[in-house]
Structures are given as structure tokens and as C-alpha cells.
Nucleic acid binder design. Structure first.
Lengths: 328, 328
DNA sequence: TTGAAAGCGCTAACAG
DNA sequence: CTGTTAGCGCTTTCAA
């Protein structure tokens, strides 16, 4: 380990080791010339502060834990990439934990604690109230991304306005003159599916129309969407809880049930994953504003980490955008 | 920070703090009863060793840096998920770095050094010789996943046998009686594309057949594959450097060029991403043995980290499997 | 087997 | 602005 330390560098410069530390600490009180001299020497010797040691001393790791499930849903790799890059840009590193789909993020918490991560972002998985309470009680930050906090759990959350999105899906189908709508739910334990369903059904109820059909796919996969669609032969307008389900449904409709889209049936999804735009699918959908959600998450994290501890849980809902494509 | 420390725990037990440390160190010399007593108390008080402190002291972080680009290619989320879970199971945590596609992993190295990660796994990006030398010179481990080391760089690498895979693609097309084959390359700077091409061309050359046509997509995306296929109107058998390119090509063939697959033209890809199996594509491909590659990577990492420093660079090539589907 | 003591490399008061 | 002095929480000799 040829790693040169601050002490070593200081010795060579004939200054105290503190000066090296200060040279690398943004707001520290150090003469500009001194800082320049130290940085130059550091550059020359290849010195870089040891973040592990700094973390121990500062009691702050600059590491954010990211808990993910469902990486198989193409929406999440996009989220992961953007989130990781935004965090990097904000000076955080990302410690990644993957949990099996449907399992709670709680399992990752002990590890996250041991690594003393500053904050945790949970996406495509949920955090139990107990887990959250334990975590927050420790003075750490936690943000749910694309998830709502369960019931009374006082957790920050950044997501898109799923209820409004569900309503927009309903309106789009109604504008196309669809009279026999149906909703394909994902897993009952995900807030996204529940909220989208809520908005979808509300739009029909408010117009005095009968409620749509409903089936539950039970998961978020192409195969689950495929199977779910098979039971919806008589519907003429299908709203799937997300795109990956919709793609599976679309193929079932066309290749198994022999129905034409959109002539016989309109299909609309949610997320706007890359595949939705492919010509083979050309799937209408509600686009989640991922970039804005990521930015909001990073902003929130910084506020929580620098600002006043506590404060009420913050929840932001960004609007989804209807993307009309050939399947509608 | 209510975090209880080893000293605190030791005080309550009336033992030395060293004993707490030993209780948590697998091979330490400590009486079984003592260990049990410590662990019980730890459990009761919610004590967990602070890994940051341990890392500083032990000069080993149990963190593996994972450098990725191209998360947009559906092959990599699968890799990421499996790799991260295998590493977790092996007692490592994953610090994730994403680099823009086409950029070298070198940019992440300084950060990785600062965090004193034990090893780095690079996938869907490459590591320059200079970067690798610098890294390895420091006594750390590095493994390329799904990449070959460039030229003389002495880097460990785990990948599938791309050359043999390319050959299998050629043979599959020949068995279908295709006479005007073409290869769609990805980026020239990726070893995967070059090796698959090599095997593909070799198969024709060995049979005294004229070399296939060749175009370069210039990247790994659906759109790049789509564009590349447009210039291949006269070919009757297309081998794409990977599946995501092939899917784009398939759509261009069918929806733009109006050619029927496989009647007019056979298409074959590489990787076996989930979408390849979807009915809308039903793409023949060469499946990479991801699980085996991941296992080999973890095994190699453990050997490098515990075993003798140095030793020659190790390179393992696992066989790809031909998956025949409707596009062939 | 156990305890004492010396760090790991850095940050953060506290004086000057 | 700069140097000195304590630690951060754990691992690891070295004696006992």
C-alpha cells in the first residue's frame, strides 16, 4: 500500500498535518497560498484523503445506501443510472443493495447501519414502519422513491402523481370511445399500483359510469401481464399498472387472443420504459418524470442531511405525462 | 447517534474491549462461553461493529467497487443484480459507479481508491492499461467481467467464449441455407464485438466461403441496431453483436424494409436478454452463462484477496449456448 | 485465553 | 491563519 498519508505529506512540506486536512476541506480557514502549496504537493505525490478515516472522524460517510428490488423491470435500471449519477455529482457514493422482489427493504438495514451510510433511498421495494422508525430514530435520512409511505409511517417520499395518472389513463380511453375498460393491477402491496387504480376508477365513478373490470397480475413482469390479459377477452380498453405488464398483455392480446390493437382494444401502460416506444409495441403510456424525481430526491437528501433534524415527513408528487402512441 | 460501541458493551460486561472485537472475529482466540456472553449482550443492546472503524484499522473495507456503463442494455441489469447478490452473499458490499457509455472506467478509479475498496469489477466498460497498472500496483484486485483485457494488460477477466459463439452463429445460419450473411458490429472498442466477429468470419473463411457483409452500429442500443439494419437490405442472414441491436434490426427489417423474418432473412443475436424470448421478437441468440460467470468472478475475487498477491493474470471463458427461436 | 496499549488516517476544537 | 491535542471505534501485537 504505497498510499501516502496526510502526515507524510505534511512532513515533506514542513507544515502541520492539520493544514493538509484544511487544504482539502472546502470552507476551512487556510491561506490561499498555503492551500495551493499543499494541493500542488498532494498532486505531485499522489495524495488523496482516505475517506474511510475521514468518515470515522467526521461521523459521516458520504455514502448513500440504495435499496432496490425488481431490477428486472426496465424502469428501474433507468432510475438506478440517473440516481447514481446524480448522487455522484452531489458528492455521494452509492452502496447498492438488492432485495428479492416482494420482500421488504428492512433486511438491508442492518448492513446499511454498519456501513454508517448517511441516508438510504428505497425504490422498487418498501420499508416497513418498524424498520423506518428504527432507522430514522437514529438520526439518519430515508427517502422512498416511486413509493408512498405506508399508512402512518412518517417517511419522506418522492413519486409521481399516480392518482392523477390513473385518471388521465381513464380519460384517454374514454376519448377513444372505449366502453368496457379494465385495469390490470400489479402487486397489492405496492402503492403505485393502488394509486393508479384509485385514479382510474375514480374517473369512471365521477362520470356515473360502471366500474372497470379488474384483474391482479400479482407481480411486475412481462409474463404476469401476459397471463393477466388472457382473462380480459371482452374488455375494449386496458390500463396496465405499468409498462412491462402492458407489453406482456399486448402480446397476449395479439398473438394469443388474436385481437387487433388498437382497433379492437386500446392499451395503455405506465412509466414509459424504452421498449414502449419500439415499433413492435408502440405503447401509449404515462411517462414518469424520472429526471425531476431524481433531482427532487437529491435536493431532499441534502436538506435532510445538512438541515434541521426532524421536521414533518415530506412528500412530493410530480405530474405524469400522457404519451399517446399507436396502441391507444 | 445512539450507536453503542464496543467499549461501552465491554464496560457493561466487565471485560476488555478487545474481547468484544474477538467475539466478532471468526478465527480469534476466545473462550466459547465468553464469545456467547458477548454476542448475547451485543444482541440485547443492539451492538453491531462499526465497519468504517474496522476498515480503517484492518486496512480492508470488504467493499467491492462495481463500474458499469450501458445500463440501458437490458443485459447489464441482469448482471448487476446477480453480481450484487453474489457479492453480498460472499460478505462484500457493492459500491456502484456508473460511467457514460464509451468512456473508460478510469474516471472512477480515484474515487474507488479513496474509498479503499478491496477490489473492482468492471463490466460494460473497459479499463485502460495505465489505469489497470496503477490500480494493481497498489495491491488491489481487479476483474473484467464480459470484457477482455486490452493487449498486454495483465488483468483478470471472466467472459463467455465469444469467438466460439460467433462461430456457432455462423453455423446456425449456414444450416438454414443462408448464403448472404452479414455481421452488425457494435463499437469497435469493445472486445465482445470484436471477438464475436472474429469467430463469425472465421467460420466462413474456414469453409472457403466469401466473407460476410459488415456494418458497424457504433453503439449498443435499439436505435443503433435499427439504423444499421437499414443498410443491409440484400443480406439473408444477420448476426448482430448483441440482442439489443438485433431487436432494433428486427423491427427495421419488418416494419421499414418490409422483409419477413425468418422467411426472407434469419436473425440471430447474442446475450439472451429477457426481451429476446418475447413473442413479438422470438429472437434466436447465444445465451451467456451469466450465473456461472458471476460465480467465477466471486471465486476469483476471493482467491485474489486472500491468496498470494500477483500471479499471472487469469482469464476464463465460459461457453455460450445457442438458443434457437423463430427468427432463425 | 485475556487485558493493555498502540495505532489506522483523518477531523475538529482549542489556543496562540 | 496555523499548530497542538484529542479523539472517531476498531484491530492487533505484546505481555501476562
Amino acid at each position: 500500500m504505497g498510499a501516502v498519508t496526510a502526515r507524510e505529506l505534511a512532513r515533506q512540506l514542513g507544515v502541520s498535518q492539520s493544514m493538509v486536512s484544511r487544504a482539502f476541506s472546502p470552507g476551512a480557514s487556510i491561506a490561499p497560498e498555503m492551500r495551493a502549496r499543499v494541493l500542488a504537493a498532494a498532486e505531485a505525490l499522489g495524495y488523496r484523503p482516505n475517506i474511510i478515516a475521514a468518515s470515522l472522524s467526521r461521523r459521516r460517510s458520504s455514502i448513500v445506501g440504495l435499496v432496490m428490488g425488481e431490477l428486472a423491470n426496465p424502469f428501474y435500471p433507468v432510475v438506478l443510472e440517473q440516481l447514481s449519477q446524480a448522487l455522484q455529482a452531489a458528492g455521494f457514493q452509492t452502496l447498492l443493495f438488492t432485495v428479492p422482489p416482494g420482500q421488504e427493504a428492512d433486511a438491508a438495514l442492518p448492513m446499511l447501519r454498519q456501513y454508517h451510510v448517511d441516508a438510504v433511498v428505497v425504490t422498487s421495494a418498501s420499508l416497513s414502519s418498524a424498520g423506518a422508525a428504527h432507522w430514522l430514530g437514529d438520526g439518519r435520512a430515508a427517502v422512498l422513491f416511486n413509493r408512498a409511505a405506508a399508512g402512518d409511517t412518517p417517511l419522506d417520499s418522492i413519486a409521481c402523481d399516480n392518482v392523477a395518472g390513473g385518471r388521465m389513463a381513464a380519460e384517454a380511453l374514454l376519448r377513444r370511445g372505449r366502453r368496457r375498460p379494465a385495469f390490470v393491477a400489479g402487486r397489492a402491496d405496492t402503492s403505485t399500483s393502488r394509486e393508479r387504480e384509485e385514479g382510474f376508477f375514480a374517473a369512471f365513478a365521477e362520470r356515473g359510469l360502471p366500474p372497470p373490470l379488474r384483474v391482479e397480475a400479482g407481480g411486475y413482469s412481462y409474463g404476469a401481464g401476459h397471463r393477466a390479459a388472457l382473462g380480459l377477452g371482452e374488455a375494449d380498453g386496458l390500463f396496465f399498472a405499468n409498462d412491462i405488464l402492458a407489453l406482456g398483455g399486448l402480446d397476449a392480446l395479439r398473438h394469443v387472443l388474436g385481437r387487433r390493437v388498437p382497433r379492437d382494444v386500446s392499451v395503455i401502460g405506465f412509466d414509459d420504459i424504452p421498449m414502449a416506444a419500439w415499433p413492435a409495441y408502440d405503447l401509449a403510456t404515462l411517462r414518469q418524470p424520472v429526471a425531476e424525481m431524481v433531482a427532487a430526491t437529491v435536493t431532499l437528501l441534502r436538506a435532510r442531511l445538512s438541515g434541521a433534524e426532524g421536521g414533518a415527513a415530506y412528500s412530493e408528487r410530480l405530474p405524469a405525462v400522457l404519451v399517446e402512441r399507436g396502441s391507444l
